[in-house]
Design a protein around this nucleic acid. Structure first.
Lengths: 198, 198, 198, 198
DNA sequence: GATGAATGAGTTTTCATTCAT
DNA sequence: CATGAATGAAAACTCATTCAT
């Protein structure tokens, strides 16, 4: 609140300034000089806000994910059925809006596999956990409303695992997958089982 | 020293000599010098058989996968029920025997994400395809024997996707997953649905 | 250490620091490490100012040639007759003062033949052109003063070609040539023809 | 005369087999492997006949020059006037027939400048000497026949120097020179002076 | 004599990171 | 706080040459 912007804000600003760069290129092909140039700051300044290059990708994923979550939250609120709500959730894997996030998350996955450190693994763990909680809550509401059967809750982990699988398969395979189709089929199939028949 | 072994054999020999190295360390932390030393050959010799470091990981994955497949084939043959056969298949994700392959496949995934080139993507695509065909055949036999319902065939892709997901999640997350448990639950659940009830 | 000197100045400084090195050794026998050591800078710093080793030779030739030209200009001004002026010009091929430039220009020739690129060829072309223009002007003044006949102007290209020839022949031949003698004879012979007889 | 071909013959064969290679590429861009492949022999065999890569260029120049000399000799014999004979001599610098030799001689010059060793310098010295002797003899005959004045003999060295100069200038400069024109003008000019006027 | 697999010294070059200003 | 010039560690990769067969 002093003269200008907070350290956190600047971190965000720098990261966002490089978004395009990381969307378009592999992080291993991007140099700190390019980043400095793109962000319009000195090379040394980057290190005031980030520990290293990977840290920028990290921040970028965090920012875009938070943004995405806000949008998701809104959509979930507007969705009527539990199935619709869940579907909103899996849109990440194919919708245009999440395209940048997907690209950068792919880089983040690469970094995570390449040199998994505590900070990164904790973040990933946390992410998974939060999303799971969120979907859990949605499901619980569905159960409460009698829309889906209670056993649904046990399937949530599996659904995420499935999502991760399809994401990776798509990234490293030439197989052309219509992810939207695939995901929707999957969810429809699941819900066919989860919905109380009477 | 050598005169009679084929180029292919030597490639295999070198790759296998470095297996431990790649199991224990990330490929980015391994230098060509280390590899040469470990394999007991000159640095230049490596380049007679491999295009680059990544190519060694590639070969290693191919070799270990082939070995693994031989074992799998045997086990599948000995398994009695279709479910047992399928389970053999998913043992990759947790059994001690596949531990090295898992480690190296993780490196391979990292390489695949980091710098996906045609050769790698084709290999991955091929792998997926072959395994799918294999499981498909097993399922078909189960269908023919009346053990499982015909719809089972549609679930195979999903099962692989699930496998990939659990593999990656385990790699980049601190969440302690009892993969064996998880996988078996999943398969049991699936087969509960797939088995003809009467 | 440095903050105020321009990029151009630093480039000059580094190049000059390595002058002795390039005078005494063939460029192919000089490593970037030696250069860094000699110039008292880090290996990486070299690449901030030069594209590669050849680029340093290039710069060195340019610097020494410019220096040499300044001296030439002075001498030409002080020379009385057109013949004297022209002789000043050809001193490059033998005088002690130009010894270093000759050595380095020899390296530059070697580089030019080894891997002729546009930048180098353009520089060489430019050099030739400028010197020609210069001598042309001197001759013109001689013509204007009635010292030499107008046809003299047509011989200039030939004189340069001759100079280049003698330079190279001397470089790659064991024949001991008294270049000073040879050049002076040549010029005397030429001027005997060019001078108006009456 | 034993089983097959002599060592000298094989040396010639290998060198000629690579002619195209050295005409089309700079010697620094050609590997011993390529040479072995092109010549259809083993890499080790090359070293039975040549000390190193440069030695092959050396041999090639020697062979092509000898071939060229045979053709020259014939042409000189058929030429009527001394001027015609001399011109035959300078055809090297521009005629299509000598194109390959020119390319390879350029490489040889590059090698000569890059790392002048005794063998190479001796060869160059010898070449120059022989050609000079040859032209000397032609001139002497012209003098004897009263075709040219005796002073002509003093100009021969200069003519060669001029030739070398034009060759190099053409190699390292972008200036488009019509060498044939240039050379013929030069010789015509010289002979205008050398021919007895009466 | 012919071979070509094996070699490893040696060099260029990159780029994340530091730190004096 | 910001900078960007300076750094130098580090690594990949090449290729002429050797030598056992």
């Amino acid at each position: 609140m002093a003269c200008c912007v907070s350290k956190t804000q600047k971190r965000t600003d720098i990261a966002l300034a490089c978004k395009e760069l990381f969307v378009k290129h592999h992080h291993s092909d991007i140099t700190m000089s390019q980043i400095a140039l793109t962000a319009g700051i000195g090379k040394g300044t980057i290190y005031e806000y980030f520990a290293n290059k990977e840290d920028i990708v990290f921040e970028l994923v965090a920012i875009l994910m938070a943004e995405s979550n806000v949008r998701k939250q809104e959509k979930v609120k507007n969705a009527t059925s539990t199935k619709e709500k869940i579907k909103v959730f899996f849109e990440f894997f194919y919708d245009e809006e999440s395209s940048d996030l997907r690209s950068i998350y792919k880089e983040f996955m690469s970094i995570s596999l390449l040199n998994p450190n505590q900070k990164i693994m904790d973040f990933q763990t946390n992410c998974h956990h939060n999303y799971k909680q969120w979907v859990m809550q949605i499901m619980q509401e569905g159960v409460d409303k009698g829309e889906v059967i209670p056993q649904s809750l046990h399937l949530i982990q599996g659904m995420f695992t499935f999502g991760t699988g399809i994401f990776i398969t798509n990234a490293i395979t030439t197989t052309v997958i219509d992810i939207e189709q695939e995901v929707n089929n999957f969810i429809d199939a699941i819900f066919a089982l989860l919905t109380k028949q009477n």
